[in-house]
Design a protein around this nucleic acid. Structure first.
Length: 474
RNA sequence: GCCCCGUUCGUCCAGUGGCCUAGGACGCCGGCCUUUCACGCCGGUAACACGGGUUCGAAUCCCGUACGGGGUGCCA
């Protein structure tokens, strides 16, 4: 048995759809699992010129995901002569014919004849001459059926009388994808066609052309279940996040995205979901792919991404997060960003974020010149409803007045001691950390204070405590 | 309308005739840890769409019904 050759054949639409990315991934997994070849082919059959920008919109996300291809990108448009020749061959052999009927005329004829809408072979024997606006239709068999032996779905039968004489060349002379697919898959020696279920219905047409062209043994097909949204509808560009680039922008890691995508329609038998791609390649098998559509759950993606983030080294995390940490819209003056500080606090941030884009919000107070906006609820809770916040702040300021702020443990001990002392004096529980946190960060929750305080430094800490204390008296 | 596909916890997946009083993960709920929020740990919630067969035995095989989805273009 020869090594499999699979292909991922996206249309150049200007972005890579997550559903397409999943198809690409499954092709890639199958190729890597079997030691086969993964071919990238851009399906630019239509008129529209394929610009470099549109090609990049496909290759960049694939590269980001780590899905390397062995051949390509090949362009369907480059083989147009072959496609046209195939059409001519079919016409010459009487297996296809010219038709000059417009869509309106076809609808009219169907209505007049009381037939279901659609084309009913009216031009088969009209001997239409080729010319501008004239299409070529394939003479579909009237009887019998075509069987698609699908690796995922099993045997699927299509009765020929339900397949109309479909167009294989447009009025402008351009071949449609059906014939281009048959010819290219044949010429490129593709052995397995792995794609979305939305293409299942087109398969018998391609097979019919394949055999009419005398191509011999056709590829094996495997139709993947569709990716759907919460409403169980096919992911649509309009209301769903379908562009892979959007996920990149929101700080998802390629390894996490790839892992998450691999879990849609397939799952490892040992039930360990988050694992190295090498293991997934090892275990992957098309025969194990599910048939039912899968909802791409953002919550699950977040969880997987969070796990990958926690597993990163602090350095790797900071480097990966820096595009967000140093973005123009960061919640602090970007010039204040300090990698050393980010690195020192990375682990605390890593266990709190689901994606890289969330990182700046946890570190903002370290890079802000001063706290100008206190979170209202936090302020109320710690400073208004809290127990003697004024005393807490005063005592902390006094206790820390001579500290050099280099020892995180000492800072913690000192601050906690203030709470303990006050608790005894007033015979009630006094929390010293809450007012301090609000004074320093403007919020009631966040990463641990102590290490961060050593980076913020004595002067900044003390002045923020004083600022909060002053606000308390207003 | 016609053609095709599908149906295991809310979601994703495991399960390919007996190991299933159906397992894991996410979510959710509760608890522990904690002078923040998280993390972590422990526990709980919850499903074989329905009806007929076949079989000693069915989530697993067959048929039907219901529901959902996809396709019905000179888009791919």
């Amino acid at each position: 048995m020869t090594a499999p050759r699979v292909r991922f054949a996206p249309a150049p639409t200007g972005y890579l759809h997550v559903g397409s990315a999943r198809s690409a991934l499954f092709n890639w997994l199958y190729a890597r699992h079997t030691g086969g070849t993964f071919v990238l082919r851009v399906e630019d059959t239509d008129e529209a010129k394929t610009t470099q920008e549109f090609v990049d919109a496909i290759t960049e996300p694939l590269t980001w995901l780590g899905l390397d291809w062995d051949e390509g990108p090949l362009f369907q448009s480059a083989h147009r002569d072959r496609h046209v020749a195939a059409v001519q061959q079919l016409v010459a052999e009487g297996k296809a014919y010219y038709c000059d009927l417009s869509r309106d005329e076809i609808d009219q004829k169907a209505a007049d004849a009381g037939l279901p809408s659609g084309y009913h072979g009216w031009s088969r024997d009209r001997d239409v001459e080729d010319g501008p606006g004239v299409v070529v239709r394939f003479r579909a068999p009237d009887e019998g059926h075509t069987v698609v032996d699908d690796l995922i779905r099993g045997r699927v039968e299509f009765a020929h009388d339900t397949i109309e004489d479909f167009v294989i060349r447009r009025g402008d002379g351009s071949p449609v994808f059906l014939i281009a697919n048959a010819v290219d898959d044949h010429d490129m020696g593709i052995t397995h066609v792995i794609r979305g279920e939305d293409l299942l219905n087109t398969t018998p047409k391609v097979l019919l052309l394949w055999h009419a062209l005398g191509f011999g043994e056709p590829p094996t097909y495997a139709h993947l279940p569709l990716l759907v949204n919460e409403q169980r509808k096919k992911l649509s560009k309009r209301r769903d996040d379908v562009a892979l680039a959007d996920y990149v922008a929101r700080g998802y890691l390629p390894e996490a995205m790839r892992n998450a995508l691999a879990l849609l329609g397939w799952g490892p038998k040992d039930e360990v979901e988050i694992r190295p791609i090498e293991e997934i390649i090892e275990m992957f098998d098309l025969a194990d792919v599910n048939k039912a559509p899968a909802f791409f759950d953002p919550k699950k993606l977040d969880h997987i991404n969070a796990e990958y983030i926690k597993a990163m080294t602090p350095m790797a995390f900071v480097e990966a997060a820096e595009p967000w940490l140093t973005a123009d819209d960061a919640p602090y003056p970007v010039a204040n960003y300090d990698r050393v500080v980010a690195l020192a606090l990375a682990e605390d941030v890593q266990q709190r974020v689901a994606n890289l884009a969330e990182a700046p919000a946890w570190l903002d107070w370290l890079f802000l010149d001063s706290i100008d906006d206190y979170d209202e609820k936090s302020w109320t809770k710690a400073m208004v409803k809290g127990t003697v916040p004024d005393r807490v702040l005063d005592d902390i300021a006094a206790a820390l007045a001579d500290d050099d702020f280099t020892d995180r443990d000492r800072l913690e001990t000192t601050v906690m001691a203030v709470g303990t002392a006050l608790s005894e004096e007033l015979d009630t529980r006094v929390m010293s950390q809450a007012p301090l946190r609000v004074a320093l960060t403007g919020r009631g929750a966040g990463i641990p204070l102590w290490e961060a305080m050593t980076h913020l430094g004595r002067d900044v800490c003390l002045s923020r405590i004083a600022a909060a204390r002053a606000r308390l008296d207003v």
